[in-house]
């Protein structure tokens, strides 16, 4: 799937000026506007108008799907990462196509609510290797507590693809940059599971994403699924997959409450 960025309107315009009706372009873009992948929500606003706008009401808004993220995390030393990558390549889908790489910067913005003394955080993620992709704004909820029998972390997550003026928008609303990091690594997919093998770097000079320093000598591994709530069979699926990676990597439910957060 090619990202459809600013290049597309100019293509459209180029042809449009020649007098073609926009309606004829409709068919070409419709199949590309169907699925929404991780971080690759299409620059949809430029394309959507090619679709038939015969909508009586706007899309359902108040009852948009509440997605939960089921998560397992672990780490592996740099020296053994290659072995893991090979194993994942064999286990996951599309083993004959090259492994997908990603190089993202994620910034966490917080706002303090004077009334309740609570802090809200939102995460803004941008692909550094492909700046034309939409930015991703993410709200990540607290992990559900109390369910000891569940094998995975379960937390609510809302992901929104946005235009590139996200940071300005956040700043104007009163959010301030709390911290940022760069994640570089590989992304695998198996069915509806997404596996990330990423190296986390800190940004030494704020504003300059080239000055990087790894946070530790390990890669962080995340196995996650975004699904509607109450899907218990998911846990089994994820557990089975995690078992296949043992003893190279121990993917488990890390108690986020115990993380020492400054």
């Amino acid at each position: 799937m090619q990202p459809l960025g600013p290049a597309v309107p100019s293509a459209l315009n180029g042809i449009a000026i020649a007098g073609l009706r926009l309606g004829e372009m409709r068919g070409k873009f419709e199949q590309q506007s169907s699925s929404v992948r991780i971080r690759q929500t299409l620059g949809g606003y430029r394309i959507m108008q090619a679709e038939a706008p015969i909508v009586e009401q706007p899309l359902t808004r108040k009852n948009a799907a509440n997605l939960q993220e089921y998560l397992l995390q672990g780490s592996i030393l740099d020296s053994s990462a290659d072995v893991l990558l090979n194993r994942l390549r064999g286990l996951c889908d599309n083993s004959d196509s090259p492994v997908e790489l990603f190089h993202d910067i994620e910034q966490v913005y917080t706002i303090k609510d004077q009334a309740n003394q609570a802090t809200f955080s939102l995460r803004a993620r941008n692909a550094l290797d492909n700046p034309q992709l939409p930015w991703q704004l993410r709200y990540v909820g607290q992990p559900e507590v109390g369910d000891k029998s569940r094998f995975t972390i379960c937390r609510s997550v809302i992901e929104v693809g946005t235009s590139s003026n996200l940071v300005t928008w956040l700043n104007e609303l009163g959010f301030r940059l709390d911290y940022e990091f760069v994640a570089k690594g590989h992304i695998f997919q198996k069915g509806r599971m997404k596996i990330l093998v990423q190296k986390i770097h800190r940004v030494c000079q704020s504003g300059n994403p080239e000055t990087l320093e790894p946070v530790s000598q390990s890669f962080l591994i995340e196995l996650s699924v975004l699904a509607p709530p109450s899907q218990e069979s998911l846990g089994e699926e994820m557990k089975a997959f995690a078992d296949q990676l043992r003893p190279l990597v121990e993917l488990e439910k890390v108690d986020h409450a115990r993380l020492h957060v400054s």
Binding site: S33, V36, T41, G44, Y45, M48, Q49, E51, P53, V55, Q57, P58, L59, R61, A64, P134, L137, I158, E159, V160, G161, T162, S163, N165, L166, T168, W169, E172, L173
Partner: peptide, 22 residues
């Protein structure tokens, strides 16, 4: 409704963020 997959957030300064339906 012409752009059903998009939501626009307009701030006082005139800055407009274009986001998807989520």
């Amino acid at each position: 409704s012409e752009h059903p997959a998009s939501v626009f957030s307009l701030l006082e300064s005139g800055l407009c963020l274009v986001a998807d339906a989520n």
